[in-house]
Every structure is written in structure tokens, then in C-alpha cells.
């Protein structure tokens, strides 16, 4: 069984953290992953920086721009991660835009992920239908779970379709927004969370966007299995560095 699927069976609310590889410094990748695991994080999304991150707000954009300036590339990231499974056991997901993967070669990219021990992928600009038609066989050949997004605007019919194609969890975007755009949840989110919970989907859901602290983590995971923090974590490493990540994680999990 894939590490993601195993993790999802644990009877707890999962905390997943997104960070941009190559930020704040080029060679922080492995340290960040190890420190996050030590701090008790359940899952990590390793962001591949992209020049034109359409779905991201200013915080992740800025970290991507800086990571690219620092010299991050797909090959370098794979090089940095080559021994990661000697020290890290939690699920690792690569998150990035499709064009860099396309240039690397989709099959070569997937093969490399498997070799390293990456468990899944999140590719916001690879729609479900194109994935199914052209890439599902390749991803599955290399044991990778592809994670799809839903939003408050996604119709129930489409959510069912996405649920049928998904094999790990569904990434539930909390509001119609880019990353880091909004913080905190209102009535709209509550009714969305309830609507999705009532659908009894086959895949568990992990909520992302708008989660920054204990309060929002708990709101998000009332019904859902877990939550993902991105922009707030990037802000933390920007201000405080990458050494004491438990300072960020502890208050959320306490």
C-alpha cells in the first residue's frame, strides 16, 4: 500500500505542510522535510517552483520566484531528494505546475519520483479529464497517487466524478481563491464542509487554502480528515528560518 493510503487510515486529523523547494535557500529542502517530520507533521507537499504559478497568491509566488533565482530546477530537486527515504518515513507529495514536468518528460518524471520515494502528485493545471485520457496509466505504473482539487463551486456531479478517479484523498480547496488570499472561514465554508461531508465520498478529504493556525486547522478538520498549510508556513520560514519548525507546528497540533 502507498504511504499516503496508509497514513489516511490512521485514526487522527492529519496536518500536511506545503513548502517551496529551494526557498529560503537553495539547499534547505532536506532540512525542512526532516524538521517537519520531527515536529510531528503527517504529510509534506514539496512545491516545485514555477515561473508562472497561476493558482497561487503573493506569498507562494514570491517564494517560487526566489527559489528559481536561487537556482532550483527539477533535476536539482531530484538530486537533493535522492536519499530522503533513508531519514524520512511520512508521505511525500510533489506539487507543481504541469509545464516543468512536461519538459522533464512525464514518464521520466514519474519514474524518478518512484525511485526517490515520492508517493503522490498534485498538479493544479492538469485537469482530471486530460489526466485520465493521457497520463493515468503512466502515473499508476510508477505507483503515484494523483490528487485532484475540488472547490465550493464544483458541482456535486463533478465531485462524484473526481471521487471516482481519485485513489488517495481529495484536496478540498476551502474557498474560491488563490493560495493565501483569505484566512479564516465563514458561513460559506461551514456549509461547504457540511455539504461535502454529507456526500459520503469514497476518498477522504483534506482541506487546503486559508488555514494558518490552530483555530483554522480545527475548523477545517471538523469533518475532513486533514488540512494543508502553505502560505502561513512560507511566511514562518521567511521570518524565522528553517531550524525550529516545531515552533510553527506545536501550537497547531497541541
Amino acid at each position: 500500500m502507498n504511504r499516503i493510503q496508509q497514513k489516511l487510515q490512521e485514526n487522527k486529523k492529519l496536518l500536511s505542510i506545503y513548502f517551496t523547494a529551494g526557498y529560503p535557500s537553495l539547499h534547505d529542502t532536506v532540512t525542512i522535510i526532516e524538521n517537519l517530520e520531527k515536529a510531528g507533521v503527517d504529510m509534506i507537499e514539496i512545491g516545485l517552483p514555477f515561473s508562472d504559478p497561476l493558482a497561487d497568491g503573493p506569498t507562494i509566488q514570491a517564494s517560487s520566484t526566489q527559489a528559481l533565482k536561487n537556482g532550483m530546477t527539477t533535476s536539482l530537486l531530484f538530486e537533493q531528494l535522492k536519499d530522503i527515504r533513508k531519514t524520512v518515513t511520512i508521505p511525500l507529495i510533489a506539487m507543481g505546475y504541469f509545464n516543468p514536468m512536461l519538459q522533464y518528460g512525464v514518464e521520466a518524471f514519474c519514474a524518478k519520483c518512484q525511485e526517490i520515494g515520492i508517493d503522490g502528485l498534485i498538479i493544479p493545471d492538469l485537469p482530471v479529464a486530460i489526466y485520465q485520457e493521457q497520463y493515468q496509466t503512466i502515473f499508476e505504473k510508477y505507483g503515484l497517487i494523483n490528487v485532484f482539487l475540488i472547490t465550493p463551486q464544483t458541482s456535486n456531479e463533478r465531485i462524484r466524478f473526481i471521487d471516482s478517479v481519485s485513489k488517495g484523498f481529495i484536496y478540498m480547496v476551502s474557498s474560491a481563491s488563490t493560495t493565501g488570499a483569505k484566512s479564516g472561514f465563514g458561513n460559506e465554508q461551514s456549509s461547504y464542509f457540511e455539504r461535502i461531508a454529507a456526500m459520503n465520498l469514497k476518498n477522504p478529504q483534506i482541506v487546503g487554502f486559508g488555514i494558518s493556525n490552530k483555530e483554522t486547522f480545527e475548523q477545517a478538520t471538523q469533518q475532513a480528515t486533514g488540512a494543508i498549510i502553505g502560505s502561513a508556513f512560507i511566511r514562518h520560514v521567511t521570518e524565522k528560518g528553517i531550524a525550529n519548525l516545531d515552533e510553527f507546528v506545536n501550537p497547531i497540533l497541541s
Binding site: 492538469l126 482539487l149 488563490t178
Partner: peptide, 11 residues
């Protein structure tokens, strides 16, 4: 061509 868009733009 095609539509390589994030789910947020789908609707």
C-alpha cells in the same frame, strides 16, 4: 490547444 486549467477555473 486544450484547457489546462486549475479546478478553480473549471466552472
Amino acid at each position: 490547444g486544450g484547457a489546462f486549467i486549475p479546478e478553480m477555473l473549471y466552472p
